[in-house]
Simulated assay, not measured.
Amino acid sequence: MLASRVRLCFSAILIIAALVGCSGERGSTESLGTAEQQHKAAELLYKQNCKVCHAQGINGAPIVGNKKMWADRLPQGVDVLVKHAVEGYGLMPAKGGKDHLTEAEIRQIVEYYVAMAN
Rank of each mutant, 00 (worst) to 15 (best):
M1A: 14
M1I: 12
M1S: 15
L2Q: 13
V6K: 05
R7V: 15
C9Y: 11
C9F: 12
F10Y: 07
A12F: 11
A12Y: 10
L14A: 12
A17I: 05
L19P: 00
V20C: 04
S23G: 00
G27V: 05
E30I: 02
S31I: 00
G33S: 14
G33F: 04
H39S: 09
E43R: 12
L45W: 04
Y46L: 06
K47A: 15
C50F: 10
A55V: 11
G60N: 02
G60Y: 03
P62L: 10
I63S: 00
I63P: 04
G65V: 11
G65N: 11
N66A: 10
K67L: 06
W70S: 09
A71M: 09
L74W: 03
Q76S: 06
G77I: 03
L81W: 03
V82A: 09
H84I: 01
H84S: 05
A85R: 11
V86F: 07
E87Q: 08
G90Y: 09
M92N: 08
G97I: 11
H100T: 11
L101C: 15
A104Y: 00
E105H: 13
I109R: 03
V110I: 15
V110H: 12
Y112N: 04
Y113I: 02
V114R: 09
A115Y: 07
M116P: 03
N118K: 13
